[in-house]
């Protein structure tokens, strides 16, 4: 079953990467994140806080959009286009199919999240340009832009000469080159002097460790939303799934205020609180701006919550799909 699971996941991953919407969302969010240091100058004295806030929000919203386009149709599209007939007539169980689709969608969202996070981290290192006399961060521009230019050039050549799919190759190249660019940026200070890898992590004003933690948790929130979209997609069309997914996102961000207020002891509120994903666990931007650092233990706790919630949603998805006719 494992190899079938990964085959379905791999196929879903390739399909998602080759859809034009993936490249469109990927590029738009990358551009917004690249402009983040310039946009963050619009506040007085809170530039770096806004830089992190804006970056995390952009990544979360970009992920929601990507998830909306990819996850919501992943199963209903297979049913509508009837490609599912050729899959389920082979030795593939419905549970395996659901889990494979979910893994493929998560892999796509994670790849995009990985690329966005690195662009965001390059922006964090660059910092907001708060005064006209401040110069740009040369290593960030050279290494970051270098990675982007090499990726686009090689992918274009591959598309022209070897029939490579442009979106797939540029994404994979960015995923491989941006970490290299970020590592180089960590090693080279703004004035081009060499520094230790730990220098950026120990700089107090940057809170780099906390930013990484926040990125990991934001990615987990996207995985939860993808699971909800997959579960809905087993029974509903793309539009209905889209609406429910956005509803779950909004409820998830306001779960504490809606169900955890004065009436929290009521049974109905308890049930609603239990079945609604609490995405506030995954949103560290507020804690960061208030100077309340999260610990590694918190990451573990939330990761446990994420795994259990996703497990429950996928079980529900499997139950919903098991009784569905697919012919």
């Amino acid at each position: 079953m494992i190899s079938r699971l990964f085959s379905i996941a791999g196929n879903t991953f390739i399909e998602s990467l080759r859809r034009p919407v993936f490249l469109a969302v990927l590029a738009t969010v990358c551009l917004l994140l690249a402009l983040n240091p310039a946009i963050s100058t619009l506040t007085l004295g809170e530039d770096d806080r806004l830089l992190v806030d804006l970056g995390l929000s952009t990544i979360l919203l970009g992920g929601i959009f990507l998830s909306a386009f990819i996850s919501t149709g992943s199963i209903s599209r297979e049913i509508d286009s009837k490609t599912i007939l050729t899959i389920l007539s082979k030795p593939v169980g419905k549970l395996c199919f659901i889990a494979g689709k979910y893994l493929g969608v998560c892999a796509t969202i994670s790849l995009a999240g990985w690329i966005w996070s690195l662009v965001f981290l390059l922006g964090v290192r660059h910092g907001a340009i708060s005064a006209a006399w401040e110069s740009s961060d040369g290593p960030v521009l050279i290494f970051g832009l270098g990675a982007a230019i090499i990726s686009v050039t090689v992918a274009s050549w591959g598309n022209y000469a070897r029939d490579w799919n442009f979106a797939t190759s540029v994404s994979l190249l960015l995923a491989a080159l941006l970490p290299l660019a970020w590592t180089l940026v960590l090693l080279v200070a703004k004035d081009w002097s060499l520094q230790g890898l730990q220098a950026e992590f120990t700089a107090e004003e940057k809170q780099l460790g906390q930013v990484l933690l926040a990125l990991a948790l934001a990615l987990q929130a996207l995985w939860i939303l993808a699971a909800i979209a997959i579960a809905c997609s087993t029974r509903l069309g793309q539009l209905a799934t889209l609406i429910i997914s956005f509803g779950a996102f909004l409820l998830g961000l306001s779960s504490d205020s809606l169900f955890g207020g004065p009436g929290r002891e009521k049974a109905l509120a308890k049930i609603a609180y239990g079945i609604t994903p609490n995405l506030q666990f995954h949103w560290l931007a507020d804690a960061l701006s208030l100077g309340n650092p999260a610990s590694g233990f918190y990451l573990l706790l939330v990761s446990g919550y994420t795994i259990l919630f996703i497990g429950a949603i996928l079980c529900l998805a499997a139950a919903l799909f098991e009784g569905r006719e697919t012919g």
Binding site: N11, S81, T86
Partner: peptide, 10 residues
């Protein structure tokens, strides 16, 4: 199947 339902991107 009655029509060739295939993945066009492959």
């Amino acid at each position: 199947p009655e029509e060739s339902y295939l993945y066009g991107f492959l």
